[in-house]
Simulated scan of single mutants.
Amino acid sequence: MAVITFANTKGGAGKTTAALLLATELLHRNHRVCVLDADPQRWFSRWQEGAPLIPRLSVETYVSASTIQKIVHERRQEWDFVIIDLPGIQSPLLASAVGLSDHVIVPIQGSSMDAQGGAQVLDLLRYLDRKAGIRIPHSVVLSRVNPAITTRSMSAVKRLLAEQQINVLDTPISERAAYREMFDLNRPLRKLEGTATGSGEKAIRNAEAFASEILAMVAPGKTLDRSLMSRRNMACYETAA
């Protein structure tokens, strides 16, 4: 079982889109997926409520800092992947969730505001490593990238991350109409009309590559050793929050 958390303290960074793309790709590959929708906007929960019944998917909402540890430990035994979609604000949930994670994904758009929101998450991860010797694997995914244009701000973000030796996924999440339609129509990407050709096919290939890259790092058989997880001190996360 693997726990993957999507975090950025700035809203609109593409966090829920990235979480939905990963979840639906994992389902397509016959994995069992539980999503903890901790975002008060409930975008993932709203999507699931309007979608047709999807086997092997559970979405839990109204997750709080006081309940998340219990929920994650219970769900680990039932599901191949637990995906946590955090609020797009600074919240005590951030420290609690990263402490339970096998990998933290930080979506960042090519703007200074997004980079600042992502930096708060990365600063917390560095703090835990430096002060408590707790090293939580994490990566940045560049989101809402125009597939035809590389902007100056995007190049600046890439350069900043490289200078700080932060792992950036090779696959950015492109800006695609199909990704917006998933939420508008409450459908998985592969169930949208027209995704078999043209731009829809490109969206699927992008989602496939994104999920494959994460699976190479966080397959169920590559999760953190449970004894190591048990040694993580939750009080340290509460202090960091």
Rank of each mutant, 00 (worst) to 15 (best):
F6H: 08
F6R: 05
N8K: 03
A13P: 02
A19H: 07
L20E: 03
A23E: 08
A23W: 06
H28N: 15
H28W: 14
R29Q: 12
N30S: 12
N30A: 10
C34M: 07
D39W: 01
P40V: 02
W43A: 11
W43V: 10
S45H: 08
G50E: 05
A51W: 06
R56N: 09
R56W: 03
L57R: 00
V59K: 01
V63P: 01
V63H: 05
V63G: 03
V63Q: 03
S64Y: 10
T67Y: 09
T67C: 12
I68E: 04
V72D: 04
Q77S: 13
Q77K: 13
D80P: 01
D85R: 06
L86Q: 04
L86Y: 01
P87T: 05
P92G: 04
L93W: 01
L94K: 02
A97M: 07
V98K: 01
D102F: 00
D102E: 05
H103Y: 15
G110E: 03
S112M: 12
M113Y: 13
G118W: 00
A119N: 08
A119S: 10
A119K: 05
A119D: 04
V121M: 02
Y127D: 09
L128K: 02
D129N: 04
R135N: 02
P137K: 03
V145I: 13
S155K: 07
V157N: 03
K158N: 04
L161K: 00
L161D: 00
E163T: 08
I166D: 00
N167E: 11
V168H: 00
L169A: 09
L169W: 07
T171M: 12
I173V: 14
R176C: 11
A177E: 14
A178H: 13
P188F: 09
L189M: 09
R190D: 14
T195F: 13
T197N: 09
K202N: 15
N206E: 13
A207Y: 13
E208K: 15
A209H: 13
I214T: 06
A216C: 15
R226E: 12
S227H: 11
R232T: 00
N233W: 03
A235Q: 14
A240W: 05
A240V: 08
